[in-house]
């Protein structure tokens, strides 16, 4: 069995340690005997859009986000959309999450159109949300660190990933964090997210592998180190938000 991971714009959207999510997906597949290949997809011509089982899209600096936004406005955005329709999964964080929505509306100037894969819209906020982020999801909790000034609001097709317990999440108002729509997830959890939230990593792996493999069951892993890091980070979030 094999897994194909596409890392979107690793040269431009790579701050706050988000590449840890690619490391987590790769390792958790390899530990189960699955072959893994990771390919970068950056600005310009994409070689093979049908290749990825899962796309990872991280956060970036403003400059990177401008360049990436322009690139996604063309053929590559359409390719990404088609890939999702064909059964691929996406995990996105922060800037990547925002660019998968309908648009990003800055304080001044014209709004930056997004890919529109997620039914969310983001407005620039005056202050930045910086701190530990603890979220209650239906399956289990999520722990991470948020650092964003965007305020994201969900439309009716997207469901929140969970409810904020500590921190601000999507917009600091409605207590929601992240968005799920089909096999596409967006969130504001850095940390990196997936190593400390292995249940979410495994859900994404299941989605990704289902694109080309039937009747799949992921073998359980020894997650003692993950649990231990989760517990310590959660304690920190509760005592020093």
């Amino acid at each position: 069995m094999d897994l194909r991971i596409a890392h979107l714009y690793p040269d431009l959207m790579n701050i706050y340690g988000d590449r840890g999510n690619v490391i987590a997906l790769s390792q958790r597949a390899k530990w189960r005997g699955i072959d893994v290949a990771v390919r970068p997809y950056s600005v310009g011509e994409w070689a093979d859009q049908d290749w990825p089982d899962i796309w990872f899209f991280g956060g970036g600096q403003d400059q990177g986000q401008d360049i990436v936004g322009a690139d996604l406005a063309g053929k590559n955005g359409a390719a990404l959309k088609k890939s999702v329709e064909g059964g691929a999964a996406i995990f996105s964080v922060c800037g990547g999450y925002q660019l998968l929505g309908h648009e990003y509306v800055p304080e001044t100037g014209p709004s930056i159109p997004g890919v529109g894969i997620l039914d969310v819209t983001t407005h620039a906020g005056k202050t930045r949300f910086v701190g530990n982020l603890l979220v209650n999801a239906p399956e289990a909790y999520l722990i991470g660190f948020e650092n964003h000034s965007g305020r994201t609001h969900l439309g009716s097709s997207a469901k929140p990933l969970g409810t904020v317990v500590v921190g601000n999440g999507n917009n600091g108002e409605d207590k929601t964090e992240g968005a799920v729509q089909g096999k596409v997830i967006g969130c504001y959890l850095h940390g990196s997210c997936l190593p400390k939230n292995p249940w979410l990593a495994d859900r994404l792996l299941g989605w990704a592998l289902a694109r080309r493999h039937n009747d799949l069951k992921l073998a359980p892993l020894d997650d003692a180190a993950e649990k231990s890091a989760r517990d310590q980070a959660t304690e920190v979030a509760r005592t020093r938000p």
Partner: peptide
């Protein structure tokens, strides 16, 4: 360290076997 367990997890995902890591 107060986030030592994050660090141990980082070593785990970098491929350091668990018998070589001690918190």
């Amino acid at each position: 360290g107060i986030r030592g367990r994050d660090l141990a997890l980082r070593f785990k995902y970098a491929g350091l076997p668990k018998e070589r890591i001690e918190v």
